[in-house]
Design a protein around this nucleic acid. Sequence first.
RNA 1: GCGCCUGUAGCUCAGGGGAUAGAGCAUCGGACUUCUAAUCCGAGUGUCGCAGGUUCGAUUCCUGCCAGGCGCGCCA
Length: 586
Amino acid sequence: MVVQLCTAGFFPYRNSYGGVSLVREGTEMSVWLEQKQQLIAALREAIDAARASGKLQVESVPEIGLEVPRDKQHGDFASNIALVMARSARKAPREVAEIIVEHLPQGGVIRAVEVAGPGFINFFLSNDWLYATLRAIEEQGEAYGNSSYGTGEKVLLEFVSANPVGPMNVVNARAAAVGDTLARLLRAVGHTVHTEFYVNDAGNQADVFARSLEARYQQLRDPSYPFPEDGYPGEYVIDLAKVLQEERPDLLDLPYEERIAFCKRWGTDQMVEMQRADLAAYGVEFDLWFRERDLHEAGALEAVIQFLKEKGLLFEEEGALWFRSTQFGDDKDRVIVKSDGSYTYVTADIAYHHNKLQRGFTKLINIWGPDHHGYIGRMKAAIQALGYGADTLEVLILQYVALLRDGQPVKMSKRAGEFITMQDLVDEVGKDAARFFFLHRSPESHLDFDLDLAVEQSSENPVFYVQYAHARISSVLRQAAEQGITVPTCREVDLSLLQHEAELDLLKQLAALPEELLQAALLREPHRITNYALELAGLFHSFYTHCHILGEEPSLRDARLVLVANIRTVLRKVLGLLGVDAPEQM
RNA sequence: GCGCCUGUAGCUCAGGGGAUAGAGCAUCGGACUUCUAAUCCGAGUGUCGCAGGUUCGAUUCCUGCCAGGCGCGCCA
C-alpha cells in the first residue's frame, strides 16, 4: 500500500492491483477481485513468456493495471499494459499488445481477447464469474462485499463535535452523515472503528452559554434583568431556563459563581442530551461522548504540558507559554497557557489527542467543518510532538452547505438567532433524504442542498429512486409467496438462463461492490456508495421494464427470482451503509 | 498577503494519465388490458476556468494566473 500526502489528510490508497493484493492472505476474496487477479496473473505470465522468447525486450515489467472499460463494447476488463510498456520495449503499443496476446494462456474463463484502440488489451469473459457472484451474495448475505483489508488498524473517528451551547447546524448534519457512513464503511473493510463526539463543555463558549442561561433564568422573575452583550440570543436558552426553574427553583440561593458553575454543567448536559437525541433520530450514535471537562478534572492538560515541557518544546514569551509547533511544520507557534493563566482551546485538544493515542488507536480520523482547516497544521504538529507520525492524524474537511428554497439560497443569521438547524432540516425533509443528499456529493465539494427536491416524492428525488427499487423487488417477492412460489437457491436453478443484457449489466454491478466498498472506505469517499446505489437501482428499473419474472416459464422465473432477491440483499446492504431505510413498500 | 476547497452540458454534480468526456434535472418525443409508470425507451447539448510544462497521449499530474467560497486570535 502506498501512502500519499494530501493537504487535508492522508489517503492511503492507490490502484495497486499489480502484485499487491487488496485482500490479505487467508481471507475471503470476492469473485470480482479474484477474477482481476487471475487476469493480471495471466498477463504477467504472457509477458514473461514473451520476454523469455526474446520477442519482448524490457528490463522490468511495470505494475499491471486492469480496469473495467467505460464502454462495454471494449470487454469485461481491459489493460493498458502494452501502452505503458511500449517505450521501454521500443515497439509500437499495438505491436506490444499483439505479442502479449499471442503468449496469453489459452482457455479458461477468457472467451475472447482483442487488441483495440491505441493498444488496449480487451478481455471478454464467459459469464460464469458473474453467476458465481450470485452464489457469493446468497452465501454471505449482507456481509457480501466486506473484506478484511483493514485488519489491525484501530481507527478512532471523531466527528460532529458541535459545541454544547446551541442546536446543531446543517454542516453538523453533513458531518454526521459522512462520519457515520464512513465508520460503517471502514468496519465493512475490516477496520476496528470507534466513534467519538468531543463535547467542548469547558471553554469560553460554555461560560458564555452559562451566563446566558443564568440571565434568562433571572428574567423569568425580573424581565428587566440584563442579558449579557455577547450572550446567545436563541429561544432555546429561554426554554431551557424554564426547565431549570422547574428543576431548581432555589437556584438564586446560591452565590453567583456557584450558580454559573451549575448552569454551565447542567446546561451543557441538557444540550448534549438534545444533540444525542437529534443524532439518534438521524441514525447516528457514538461509541463515546467525550467530555472536555473530564480532561480538565483529570489534570490531563497539566500532564501534557509537562510532557511537552520535558521535551523542550515550550517557551515563555509576553507572559504566555507557547508550543513551538513551527518545529513540526506549523505556520506559527501556538499559545498553550495564556498570560492570564488560562488554557487555550488547542491545549485541551492536544490533551484529548494525547488521550486518544494512549488508548492505542493507530489512526485518528477527524471530520471538521470548513472553518477549521487552518487548525490542521497545529494538530499535526502536536501529534508529532507527542511522538507519533504526522500521518497518524487524518483530517477530512467538509465544505459549506447552502440550502436552496425555490432556487434561492436560504438566508441565515446566527446573530439574530435565525438559522435552520439540523433538526429543522430533518423535520422538513426526513432522515433518509437528508442523509442521502449529504452522501451524494464528495465531502470536499461545496454543497447546494435543494430543500424542494428533497421532499419531492417523485422520480426527481434520487433517494426515492433507490428505495423504490427495493420496494419493487419486495413486491415481486411478496406476490411470488402469495402464489406459493418460494425463492429458490442458486443451486436449484440454472443461472446460465440469465443472458439478457439487462441481467448481465446487473450482475456486473453486483460483482463490483467489493471494490467499490474498498475504494469508498480507503479514499474516505462515502459518496461513491450513494452513486453505486443509484446505478444499481437504475439497472434494476431498466431490467424490470424489459424482463418479466413471475409470468415467465418456471426455470427462467426461478433464475430471475434468485437474481432479484440478491439485488435486494445488496440494495439493503448499501442503503444500510448510508443509514437510509429500505422500505418493503412505498 | 498566506493557506484550504471549488471551477466539467442551461442547472445540480459524477468521473478521471489513455479508446467517441458521463448521470440526474430541465427541454422535446414515445411506452401502462401484463410482477408498483415514484418506472422505462429515444433525441440535442460541452474551448472539462485560462496559459504554460511533463508525457507516445492531459480534461485528469505539475506550475502560474483568473473567478467564487472559507479560513488565517493569548476565540472555540
